[in-house]
């Protein structure tokens, strides 16, 4: 690890100011950033911890019935207190291990946009709104390819708003070593249609499976997916599975998510 200065502001405004410094970087739970620093793959001069900002902590119900999660809320809190959106709470409950869940934050996860992470599928699959210190970004506009998002330099995710669906489920098929998602499928049924978001599979990061959404919007049942499949050509192919295997798993996990949706 290279040396850096450490700041722990108490308000979003102070955090934004601190992040204005040259080569400053936000620190959420550090579950991605700290290992990166230890490997000397990043060298920020200032780390600005977001964990001391009260307004970024915790879960509440929005006026429109959405579940609002502070950007610095850790996964364990969402798992324990996100009962208003059971599929989301269950998603959080299966991220990493207890240590990761007690440190890692939703803002950090969405800012990082790891192609195998779980929250991006939940956010895209729910049509969530990513609220930052400057604006509100629809999930459909937010995810822009693996490790790439709509966030500007120094922009902070302060809150994430999840419209609560009628039914939803997340099916995670774990990569055996990291236990991130080899393929993870988040299915959510809203009054105006079904959303299907898939993580782990694509070289372009989390994506929506439009054909499946159309079929499920017409008939929310596993066999509505019969005959639908994705191509593995542009999917991740690595030690743990070929693109073809991942494409196959997308179909299997989508069906299972529909069957299990509650």
């Amino acid at each position: 690890m290279y040396n850096f200065d450490f700041e722990k502001p108490g308000t979003v405004a102070d955090a934004v100011a601190a992040l204005g410094a040259d080569e400053a970087q936000a620190l959420g739970g550090g579950q991605t950033l700290i290992p990166t620093l230890k490997q000397r793959l990043a060298s920020p001069t200032v780390l600005v911890s977001l964990k001391g900002i009260a307004e970024m902590q915790g879960i509440c119900a929005g006026d429109d019935g959405a579940l609002c999660i502070g950007g610095a809320t850790n996964h364990a809190t969402v798992a324990a207190e996100g009962g208003a959106y059971p599929a989301l709470a269950a998603t959080a409950a299966h991220i990493g291990d207890p240590a990761v869940r007690n440190r890692g934050t939703i803002g950090g996860s969405l800012a990082n946009n790891d192609p195998s992470a779980c929250y991006p599928a939940a956010a895209l699959g729910s049509g969530a709104t990513i609220v930052t210190n400057t604006r509100q970004i629809a999930a459909d506009d937010y995810f822009q390819g693996m490790f790439t998002t709509a966030l500007e330099e120094g922009e902070i995710i302060t809150e994430v708003r999840f419209p609560v669906p009628e039914k939803a489920n997340y099916q995670k098929f774990v990569q055996p070593a990291s236990r991130f998602a080899l393929v993870g499928v988040f299915v959510a049924k809203y009054a105006d249609g079904v959303r299907v978001a898939i993580t782990g599979a694509s070289n372009d990061g989390v994506f929506r499976w439009a054909e499946a959404e159309a079929a499920l919007s017409a008939n929310f049942a596993p066999d509505a997916l019969d005959g639908l499949s994705l191509s593995g050509d542009d999917m991740i192919s690595d030690l743990h599975g070929t693109g073809a295997y991942r494409a196959h798993l997308c179909g299997v996990m989508t069906k299972r998510a529909v069957a299990a949706a509650a």
């Binding site: 055996p176 070593a177 990291s178 690595d238 030690l239 743990h240």
Partner: peptide, 17 residues
Amino acid sequence: AYDDNGQLLSGSYMDYA
């Protein structure tokens, strides 16, 4: 596992199960 260039593909617990 190694790739054809002799790079270790499973060099951490992220890939070595």
